[in-house]
Design a protein around this nucleic acid. Structure first.
Length: 512
RNA sequence: GGCCGAUUCGUCUAACGGUUAGGACAUCAGAUUCUCAAUCUGGUAAUAGGAGUUCGAUUCUCCUAUCGGCUACCA
């Protein structure tokens, strides 16, 4: 409508469980869009289904967004000019609007019981048809359209349960525009009379609450999942019925995230049955199970966000690594794809590797401190950071640094069998003793000077470098993989290096 | 079943009528190395099918197929 309007977007989850990565992505795109346009990002809790409310879910949602670095301008905790932001606390607002539609002829009371409707559905099914509460049947059911005003009032007054249904116009083409999908046209013939308000719990359904709140909260753009596309015509019609077309938000329907294996869209219930998380943070459902989270699995929030942003959106360039600020400036709805995305755990790992490399060593050291303590390692952050620096490119997950650096602080308590079999030979061990003497003669071990010296010595004596170096590695490190052996020795120091050689000879003997 | 949406390498995607159909992950080879990673170089690999429109279709139209969503007094 009016492009000068302040950009205000909302993320409106229902607290029916943990937020899965699809939800996080929707929140992220809303956030990026808001920040890019200097607008507002609102968190609204859509808890109009009292049946499905899950305790702890709200808090989980907010914790997750916080971890992701998505900050909220207005919300249930932040407050704001349109508070409250929890729909259950706004229940008094909705009835007025529902009645407005009844008055202007766009909605009506319906008194059918759930049993009545179930019966109708069963009947239709028996005839191979699908029951639809629409123009064809609304006049033959118990509605204010065919009951006298007195009778309607009487039923309401005596406490009969009722709902307010939208009166879907007949045979009209609704013309809609979606920022991602373009123009969409649909005939109302295929739509039914959706319930807008229920007397039973004095709450609106999603459709009413959503439109009323978006209007009241001055939402300019609705960015939501594709599962809402079928209700878009209803929403358009509701804006018209209220006379709010001039401020109707623009819509953008995001492609769905698909299950990595099998079929269907990703769901909360998928938990971690695929061997990787679908939730940002660990989630403890009521059944006592624990569903793992990206945070606990060792992902950095930066990597998680980076990965998620590129799932369904591309920058139009070949850039792949984005900070949140990069994303804010590069994001655009035009580059959001139309088709659903199946996400690739391998790629997620790659993003994390990339991000681990650019993360400050001390910060990583702080993160693995508890893990080191559990291993009995109590090194300073500075010392741990130095060890991490040597392992920088070798980790996929944060906690990898803990295990990767374990031997930097603890002597090997076992020796890799393969390495021992391959290198722990009489010849090698006797040369290792010579090497030990050489190292002992150094004031300290410095890779830049010690390594060339050792190399020259090996050459002079005609020794085989591979054999000797790997024997040294076996003694010092215990396993075959790891960084340069000279860097390890330098890190642990001369005395410790010599002690480890002695320990290895004492443990493994003189070789065979 | 009905309605809506989608369809480019195994996966995420680029190419908005003219490209040897590009990149990334994965994969495979080679290089490098004291080991293992990392890194570097190179390779394999895609326009769902069929009709049109056009000088020319990945791109536009239609049909079919497949996938997905919705079809609740759930969101």
């Amino acid at each position: 409508m009016n492009n000068e309007r302040r950009v205000r977007v909302r993320f409106a989850p229902s607290p029916t469980g943990a937020l899965h990565i699809g939800g996080v992505r929707t929140a992220l795109y809303n956030y990026l869009f808001a920040r890019q346009h200097g607008g507002d990002f609102i968190l609204r809790i859509e808890d109009t289904d009292s049946q499905r409310f899950v305790p702890g879910a709200e808090d989980y949602i907010m914790q997750s967004l916080k971890w992701c670095g998505i900050s909220i301008d207005e919300g249930i905790n932040e407050g704001g000019p349109h508070a409250p932001y929890r729909q259950s606390e706004r229940r008094d607002i909705y009835l007025k609007y529902a009645l407005q539609l009844v008055q202007n002829g766009n909605a009506y009371y319906a008194f059918d019981s759930a049993e009545d409707l179930n019966k109708l559905r069963e009947q239709a099914e028996a005839n191979g048809q699908t029951f639809s509460y629409d123009a064809k049947v609304r006049n033959s059911l118990q509605t204010s359209l065919n009951l006298s005003e007195d009778e309607v009032n009487e039923r309401i007054n005596r406490g009969d349960q009722w709902v307010i249904r939208f009166k879907m116009p007949e045979n009209e083409n609704v013309e809609m525009d979606d920022l991602i999908r373009g123009h969409i046209s649909i005939n109302t013939q295929t739509l039914d009379d959706k319930v807008l308000y229920k007397s039973a719990d004095k709450l609106p359904t999603y459709h009413l609450a959503n439109i009323v709140d978006d209007h009241l909260m001055e939402i300019s753009h609705v960015i939501r999942g594709e599962e809402w596309l079928p209700s878009l015509p209803l929403h358009y019609l509701l804006y018209r019925a209220f006379g709010w077309e001039s401020t109707r938000p623009q819509f953008a329907h995001l492609p769905l995230l698909l299950k990595p294996q099998g079929q269907g869209k990703l769901s909360k219930r998928d938990g971690d049955k695929f061997g990787f998380p679908v939730f940002p943070l660990e989630w403890h459902p009521e059944d006592g199970q624990v569903a793992m989270g990206y945070r606990e699995a060792g992902y950095l929030p930066e990597a998680f966000i980076n990965m998620l942003a590129l799932l369904g959106w591309n920058p139009g360039t070949e850039q792949e690594i984005f900070t949140m600020d990069d994303l804010i400036s590069a994001f655009s709805l035009e580059h959001v794809s139309k088709s659903g995305a199946r996400f690739n755990p391998e790629k997620a790992k790659w993003f994390n590797q990339q991000w681990l490399r650019t993360t400050d060593d001390k910060k990583l050291a702080e993160m693995i401190k508890p893990l080191h303590e559990a291993m009995g390692i109590n090194a300073s952050v500075e010392r741990t950071a130095e060890a991490i620096a040597l392992m920088k490119d070798r980790a996929t997950f944060v906690q990898d640094y803990a295990s990767l650096t374990e031997r930097m602080f603890k002597r090997p308590d076992s020796y890799d069998e393969k390495s021992v079999n391959k290198f722990w030979k009489v010849d090698n061990v006797s040369k290792l003793r010579e090497l030990r003497d050489l190292l002992a003669g150094e004031s300290q071990i410095v890779p830049e000077t010690t390594e060339p010296k050792v190399m020259d010595w090996i050459k002079e004596n005609g020794y085989q470098m591979g054999q000797l170096m790997n024997t040294l590695r076996t003694a010092i490190w215990g396993i075959s993989n790891g960084p340069s052996i000279f860097h390890i020795c330098a890190f642990i120091g001369k005395e410790e290096s010599l002690a480890r050689i002695d320990q290895a000879i004492a443990t493994l003997g003189e070789g065979k």
